[in-house]
């Protein structure tokens, strides 16, 4: 089981993947909160404290994952972020790291990569 009990906030607009990730993280012992969009997360951030880790899809419809991170950073919220994307290219990758992230995952990814990234998060 996980060594950390920090809550993982998953924001993903693909319901199937969102549920799959939720199941996976839960199976690993993480508390999980899921949102279908950045907008939904911004509306209801209750329960998302400083120990949370954000697992963010970059290409969210509406506010993108990178934009959300920028907003959170600019508003003083400094949460560890793991970006995930189905569209991997150099530009996206650069933007992701520029916005600030502890890991960048290319979908589909093995759970080990995700769990390792979570466990290595500050």
């Amino acid at each position: 089981m996980g060594y950390c009990v920090r809550t993982i906030v998953v924001i993903e607009d693909n319901p199937s993947l969102l549920q799959g990730l939720s199941r996976l993280l839960s199976a690993h012992g993480f508390p999980v909160r899921t949102f279908g969009s950045a907008e939904a997360f911004l509306e209801d951030k209750s329960g998302c404290d400083a120990d949370c880790l954000l697992l963010l899809d970059i290409h969210l419809s509406g506010i993108s994952g990178i934009d959300l991170q920028r907003r959170l950073t600019s508003s003083g919220t400094d949460l560890p972020v793991i970006f995930m994307t189905a569209i991997d290219n150099e530009t996206t990758r650069q933007e992701a790291f520029d916005a600030g992230c502890i890991a960048y995952l290319r979908k589909p990814f093995l759970s080990k990569l995700l769990i390792d990234a979570i466990n290595q998060a500050p």
Partner: peptide, 22 residues
């Protein structure tokens, strides 16, 4: 198309691993 393909593949992988753990 890559996006469209990788989304369900990602879901399948996550679900499979979750099932294995369960």
């Amino acid at each position: 198309l890559a996006h469209e393909l990788n989304q369900p593949l990602g879901a399948i992988l996550s679900n499979t691993e979750a099932a294995q753990m369960l």
